[in-house]
Write a protein that binds this DNA or RNA. Structure first.
Length: 474
DNA sequence: TGAAATGTTGGGGCG
DNA sequence: ACGCCCCAACATTTC
C-alpha cells in the first residue's frame, strides 16, 4: 500500500502532519513536489530550488527519492497515483486562491480513487474555526490574536524515524530544468551569502531565536542591527513549522519572545484574511479606494525599484532587497509608504515588485501588508499615517549605518546629514566626495509637498459619492 | 507600527 | 515684586 505525500509549502521532515498521516496510513511513502510556474517569484524561486535540493538530500539519506514533477498538480498527481498504485494522498492545506482551486480539482479528479488527507500544517490557527461573536470573520488584528491564542495549538511532533520512503524508481524531472536558478539577474552571490535554504538552515535559525528575542523589544525597529528572527523565508516554505516556532518562543517566557510570538500571529491573520477575502491580492478591501486617483508613474516606479529616489532610507531598503532578497520590516513600511503616498503609485505595483524580489514573498503576508500601509485593508493604518522618510531614518537608523551599508555613495557623509544629504552645506558635500544629482540623486519629490498632495487626493476620493463601503466604516 | 498642526503650561528674562 | 512676553517642552487634535 503506497501513500503519496504531496509536498507543498511544508518542505520539512520534522513536525510535518502530512508526512505523519501518510506514515500512519501506508507502508510505502512516495514523496513528490509539483513545480508550478505561477507560484513563485524570481528570488523565491532561487530559494525554492535550494530548498527542494535540500529536501531531496534529506530524503535520499533516508533511502528514498523526492520526485519532482511539473505542470498542473491535479493531473500530475493523478498520473502518479496510477504509476505507484497509491491508496492515499496526503498534503498540507494552503489558502491562496490558486492553491485552493488546485485542491478542489484534485478532489474531484481523484474522488473515489484514493483517500485524500488534507492537513492543517502550515498555520497555528484553523481559518474555519475563528469568528467574532457575530459569526463574521475578524477584521481587526487584536481581537483575532486574542481569540487565536486562546485556542491552544498542539506542540510540534517529531520526525518519523523508521524506514518509510519507497525505494521504487519513478520518473523525476531534473530540478535544474523544471525549477532553474534565475540566471538574469543572477542573484545567487548576494543571496547565498545571507541565507541557507532548507530544513537544517531553518532549524539553525530557530536555535538562534533566543539571541534574536533578547533585544527584540528595544531593537526590533532598528534595521542597522541584526535583531529580527529572519525566519520569514523558512516559514514561507514550511522548512520550519509555525508550531515549532511558537513552541520555541513560548518556552522562553521573555518579553522579546512574547513580542515575536505576536508577530507570528500577523502571519496567521494574513492567511486568515486571504482565506476569507480571496480578492485581497488584487482589490482594496475598502472599496472606496477604487476611486483613489492613483498615478501611473512608470519612471517613479523604476527609480523606486532601483533605489534611486534620493531619500537615503528608502534607497537603502530597496537596494538591500535587490542585493539580499530581504528587507527589514520597518524599512518595508517606509518604502511602501513612500511608493503609495509620496508617489501615489498603486500599492499593487509595489506588491508585485516585492513578490518578485523577496525570498520570503508570500501572497497572504504581502497583500495584507501592502493594503495595511495603503490604508485600504482590514485593520489598516489610517490613510493619513504618512511616513516622513527623513524622520524615520533619523529615528531608526540614528547613526546612518544602515544607509552607509547599502548606499555606499553616502558612506562618507556625517550622520547629521545622512538622511537628508540635500541639506548639507557645500563644504560637507565636498569633504564627503558627494555630488548630488551626480553620484546620488536629488530627492525625486519634496516630501512636504508630496504629503499634501496625498492628503488632497485622499480627500478627493472621500468627496466622490459612491457605493457605501463594503468593509464598513470601522 | 505617524507626523504636523494646534493647544497648554511653566520657567526665565526683562522692563 | 510683578506683569508681560518668549519659547521650549509637553499634550491634544487633526490630517
Amino acid at each position: 500500500m503506497a501513500a503519496i505525500v504531496w509536498f507543498r509549502r511544508d518542505l520539512r521532515l520534522h513536525d510535518n502532519l502530512a508526512l505523519l498521516s501518510a506514515v500512519a496510513k501506508g507502508t510505502e511513502i512516495v514523496p513528490v513536489y509539483v513545480v508550478d510556474e505561477q507560484d513563485t517569484g524570481g528570488a523565491s524561486r532561487w530559494w525554492l530550488h535550494h530548498s527542494l535540493r535540500a529536501l531531496q538530500n534529506d530524503i535520499s539519506s533516508m533511502g528514498g527519492q523526492l520526485l519532482i514533477r511539473s505542470g498542473d498538480p491535479a493531473a500530475e498527481l493523478q498520473a502518479l497515483v496510477d504509476e505507484c498504485g497509491a491508496t492515499s494522498l496526503h498534503y498540507s492545506k494552503r489558502y491562496e486562491p490558486a492553491s485552493r482551486r488546485q485542491e478542489s480539482q484534485l478532489a474531484s479528479l481523484l474522488d473515489g480513487q484514493v483517500d485524500i488527507a488534507a492537513a492543517d500544517n502550515n498555520y497555528l490557527t484553523n481559518v474555519n474555526a475563528l469568528f467574532t461573536k457575530g459569526g463574521s470573520p475578524f477584521k481587526v488584528f487584536t481581537p483575532f490574536w486574542r481569540a487565536a491564542s486562546a485556542s491552544h495549538h498542539s506542540g510540534p511532533r517529531p520526525m518519523p524515524t523508521e524506514r518509510l520512503f519507497s525505494s521504487r524508481d519513478f520518473d523525476s524531472a531534473p530540478l535544474d530544468t523544471v525549477c532553474p536558478l534565475p540566471a538574469n539577474p543572477d542573484w545567487a552571490g548576494g543571496l547565498r551569502a545571507q541565507w541557507q535554504p532548507g530544513e537544517s538552515g531553518a532549524l539553525q535559525r530557530l536555535d538562534e531565536i533566543s539571541a534574536a528575542s533578547k533585544n527584540y523589544v528595544t531593537l526590533r525597529d532598528r534595521p542597522d542591527k541584526d535583531t529580527t528572527s529572519r525566519l520569514s523565508p523558512h516559514l514561507h516554505f514550511g522548512e520550519v513549522s509555525a508550531r515549532q516556532v511558537a513552541h520555541a518562543l513560548s518556552s522562553q517566557q521573555s518579553d522579546g519572545a512574547a513580542a515575536l510570538l505576536r508577530q507570528l500571529y500577523w502571519r496567521e491573520f494574513s492567511a486568515y484574511l486571504l482565506y476569507h477575502y480571496p480578492s485581497l491580492p488584487v482589490a482594496p478591501l475598502r472599496s472606496e479606494f477604487e476611486k483613489f486617483p492613483w498615478v501611473n508613474d512608470e519612471e517613479g516606479l523604476r527609480l523606486w525599484q532601483k533605489g534611486k529616489t534620493g531619500y537615503p532610507i528608502v534607497d537603502a531598503g530597496m537596494r538591500q532587497l535587490w542585493a539580499s532578497g530581504w528587507m527589514h520590516n520597518r524599512v518595508r513600511m517606509i518604502v511602501a509608504s513612500f511608493l503609495i503616498k509620496d508617489l501615489m503609485i498603486p500599492w499593487q505595483k509595489g506588491a508585485a515588485w516585492f513578490a518578485d524580489t523577496l525570498v520570503d514573498a508570500d501572497l497572504a503576508n504581502n497583500s495584507a501588508s501592502w493594503q495595511w500601509v495603503a490604508g485600504c485593508g482590514t485593520d489598516s493604518a489610517p490613510y493619513f499615517r504618512i511616513f516622513n522618510p527623513i524622520l524615520q531614518g533619523k529615528k531608526f537608523d540614528p547613526n546612518g549605518d544602515y544607509v552607509r551599508r547599502w548606499v555606499p555613495e553616502l558612506a562618507a557623509l556625517p550622520a547629521k546629514w545622512i538622511h537628508e544629504p540635500w541639506q548639507a552645506d557645500l563644504v560637507t558635500l565636498a569633504e564627503s566626495d558627494l555630488v548630488l544629482g551626480g553620484d546620488y540623486p536629488k530627492p525625486l519629490v519634496d516630501h512636504g509637498i508630496a504629503r499634501k498632495n496625498a492628503l488632497a487626493a485622499y480627500q478627493l476620493m472621500r468627496d466622490i459619492p459612491g457605493d457605501s463601503d463594503a468593509m464598513g466604516a470601522g
